[in-house]
Amino acid sequence: MDDNMVRIYIMGKEYRVPSNLTILTAMEYAGYQVKRGAGCREGFCGACATVYRLEDDYKLRADLACQTKVEDGMFLAQLPFVPAQRARYDIDQLSPTVGVFQRLYPETFKCVSCNTCTKACPQDINVMDYVQAIIREDIERAADISFDCIMCGLCAMRCPAEIVQYNVAILVRRLYGKYLAPRSLHTEKRIEELNKGMWKKEVEELMSLSEEELKKRYKKREKEA
């Protein structure tokens, strides 16, 4: 076989594809037009969660199709959808406490610390650590650890305790951002000024200038060091 080609098995069917492709581009090379299973194609949206196994290896692996190179003997299938439960809430009525999670996501407390979620995470997030942080009511730490979560759902699909880690994590981050992170006072102040009608005159004055005048002002700007 050509050195530059590898065999991959898309849902069990063999295709020969160039070895430099990602799983996503390899599927397209093989002739698939992906409808589900592709979003941003840059590793930010979590649409292309893929599970795969290598030949003669029992281990079930998981990664993002858009960021993972194909390997010879890869058996793969994409997750078109993650049927995970999601709580509904009014964020204004919650508090940043463990009680919120006991009420909205009680299964979180069934975590058996097996670490399967962490191993499944394509972002290498310590998923189990943030689940444990929530149980200890360390909202700040849970929000910090889970920050890079792209909500692909692989953790939840692998969890033996059937925890929906990624949905729990967006709630923990929102609670931290809203209730525990220090408020930006300068933003608040500027909004108050704008509500009082300040700054309108300055902007409208610029709107009334000729292009030549505007250019002069633009050139004269002082740049913050």
């Binding site: 931290y176 951002g177 809203k178 992170a181 700054w199």
Partner: peptide, 27 residues
């Protein structure tokens, strides 16, 4: 765009967006 901008940042803070901030909340 420029007049609504600070209000948008405040709205996002209310929704719980975790902006990069100093300890005192300064962006």
């Amino acid at each position: 765009l420029v007049m609504d901008a600070p209000g948008v940042i405040g709205w996002l803070e209310d929704l719980g967006v975790m902006f990069d901030k100093e300890k005192d909340g300064t962006m």
